Computed example of a mutant assay.
Amino acid sequence: MTRITHRRPTSSATTVHSPLGPVHRTVATVALALLGLLAASPAAANTVTKSSAGTCVDATGIGTFTWSTPANAQASDNAYSTAAFSGNNDASHFLKCTGFGFSLPSNSLIQGIQVEWEYKNATSGTIIDNAIRVVKGGTIGTTDKKSSAGWPATDTFVSYGGSSDLWGDSWTASDINGSSFGAALSTVQASGGSHTASVDSVRIT
């Protein structure tokens, strides 16, 4: 979940001299105190979700099986990028998706990143995550959020990370807004004969 907090600008107070006497000076003091409390209140937190990647590609660095038609994972439209395995322990390359079109204000504080992959295993046997990473500046990170759960038989969004999870890194608005920010996935066949992993899309919050 790309959860952001906007910094409030600091303000300075000036002394006001009133000719209206002690009562009015007291009212002015109370008003200034209330303004001080408002200025000290916590900044509002917002979340922003982007559901379409600008680019999805097959990326080496893990596994041996390529993703066919990787661009099909750019949007949730039931057109799939697939990795076809021939046996147990076969693992895919990364499916790397970037360019989500975030436009966070420059003073945003990034508090967490949530990645949701939409995928399925419509064949028999078991397919599981091999690696779940985020991409910063075009580089696939090392913090891994993979799960040992089998992929569902029907198209499902599965969530990784969250509102307070920074994936072992520090982030600026510029990092998130960049065209090379995104997510990467690799999968592996855990059991069965020859099976196919299918990815429909990925969204980031």
Rank of each mutant, 00 (worst) to 15 (best):
S81P: 00
T154P: 12
I113L: 10
S51R: 12
M1A: 13
R3F: 01
S11C: 05
A33V: 03
S41P: 02
A13T: 12
S148R: 08
K96P: 07
G125T: 02
G141L: 10
G138K: 02
I4Y: 06
R7H: 08
G99F: 08
P70A: 10
S124H: 02
I110P: 03
G138N: 06
A83L: 05
I140E: 08
S41R: 15
G141H: 12
W117E: 04
N78C: 11
F100L: 02
E116T: 08
V23R: 13
R203A: 01
V188M: 04
A73H: 08
T205D: 03
V48G: 00
L35A: 13
D165Q: 11
V158S: 15
L32T: 13
F157T: 08
A33F: 05
D169F: 13
F100K: 02
S174Y: 08
N72H: 10
S81M: 05
C56Q: 10
T55H: 10
K145E: 11
A44V: 15
V27L: 15
I4C: 00
A45Y: 00
P105I: 06
A75G: 04
G21P: 10
V199Y: 07
F85V: 00
G178F: 09
G112M: 02
G182K: 09
I132R: 14
T49E: 07
S179E: 10
L95F: 07
T123G: 15
T126Y: 10
A45P: 00
A31D: 05
A83E: 08
F181Q: 03
A153M: 10
S159R: 13
H17N: 09
V23G: 05
V158C: 12
G21C: 13
L166D: 04
T139M: 09
S18Y: 02
F94R: 05
A53Q: 09
L37H: 11
T14P: 01
S148H: 07
L32H: 01
A173H: 01
A53W: 01
A184W: 14
P70N: 06
Q74R: 15
P105A: 07
S51H: 10
G61E: 02
D169W: 14
F181L: 00
T26D: 15
G54I: 10
R7K: 06
T98K: 11
